[in-house]
Write a protein that binds this DNA or RNA. Structure first.
Lengths: 195, 195
DNA sequence: GACATTTTGATAGTAACTATCATTTGATAG
DNA sequence: CTATCAAATGATAGTTACTATCAAAATGTC
């Protein structure tokens, strides 16, 4: 069996070091004021290496490994469960595994995503991929086609709901925790967003 | 009263010429393969002038004058009307004023928005502004606060629904017209996106 | 026609990103 | 342990979007 190996371990370590140093520099001097050269230098690598790990500067903030976890948690839910309910439960399970440090990291990232337009834009590109993922999972679950208007609409609206929740959580200070806000958003959505 | 004047007329003309030439070049040789220098040259202006009209290359596709029209049409709707219904009607009114040529132009723009990630990202930044606009209009109408979670959630989800509709329309070939698709999306949303 | 103001053009510079090739480092077989 | 191969890194040069600044031209006003 393929044990991790020094090579792979070093790569992961380098990746995390670059992300860590980048976040530190962003906090200290701002996103736009930080160059890739600085990030690379702080992490002890060349700019070339930076670009091998992150296709764009924005990715150093946006990139994470949560998507496959969500997919797994979603598919763990029982067949008969309604899609929106399955997703809610999946998120609950995922958050349950997060340490407070994880949450703090997420919050810092979201802060930048919300406040730097270019990063937010990049995040949205990610969301498009997530939408497709949801469309496919939901299509499989309901026996519909993934290109069906209502399936795609469901995915788009759900991602928007989720995003709105995260943003509200991030700039809402320490008011409520993320899951509570998410529940309120999903409830509101299920009722047809009445006002 | 301020009559248009030669100066303003020329500016509008220059703006439209740049957008027109840009769209032509994008169609002919692709978005990424077209430089701002080329667009400026084709429109008979300097690159400096291009940047005075459009802050980014993406804006030449994304920028339009529809937002204020939507706001106006929305505020024309009777007080008592539910927000989602008022918006639906406002859109219907707006589309009614569009010529087939307008629609063709919109479709070409949407094609690029959907297919070029950078442009789509820029469009999303616009959408964030639109969300805020909707939040404020809805807040005024319902007597709530514009920073209220449910108000912001409503705006976010509504913009997502609308966007999903436009995208489906754009790559759905000549199947249905935009307003029909929009109606289906808004209906689906009002019912709580059941599947 | 003279003057003020707005719009444009030209120039130089920064930084993100790409492409390419030589160099180093970790994995592997003998 | 060494020789060899593959993967990862570094260095270099170049393109292009975008910024800042100042001089020149076009337009509006008296």
């Amino acid at each position: 069996m393929n044990r991790p190996g020094l090579r792979e371990r070093k790569k992961i370590e380098t990746l995390h070091r670059m992300q860590g140093e980048a976040m530190r520099l962003f906090e200290e001097q701002g996103y736009d004021e930080t160059t890739i050269e600085q990030i690379a230098a702080a992490a002890g690598v060349s700019p070339s290496t930076f670009y091998r790990y992150f296709p764009t500067k924005e990715d150093v903030v946006v990139q994470d490994e949560y998507d496959p976890m969500i997919v797994a948690a979603f598919q763990d839910q029982p067949e008969g469960m309604a899609p929106i309910e399955a997703l809610r439960t999946a998120l609950r399970v995922l958050f349950g595994q997060f340490t407070p440090e994880d949450m703090e990291r997420v919050r810092k990232r979201v802060d930048i995503i919300v406040s730097v337009p270019a990063v937010r834009a990049r995040q949205v590109q990610q969301s498009v991929a997530t939408e497709r993922l949801i469309s496919e999972m939901v299509a499989e679950r309901t026996g519909r086609d993934a290109t069906d208007l209502e399936v795609r609409h469901f995915a788009a609206v759900l991602v928007a709901s989720w995003t709105a929740g995260v943003i509200a959580w991030s700039d809402g200070g320490l008011g409520e925790d993320l899951m509570t806000i998410m529940d309120r958003c999903l409830d509101h959505l299920e009722r047809g967003v009445p006002l």
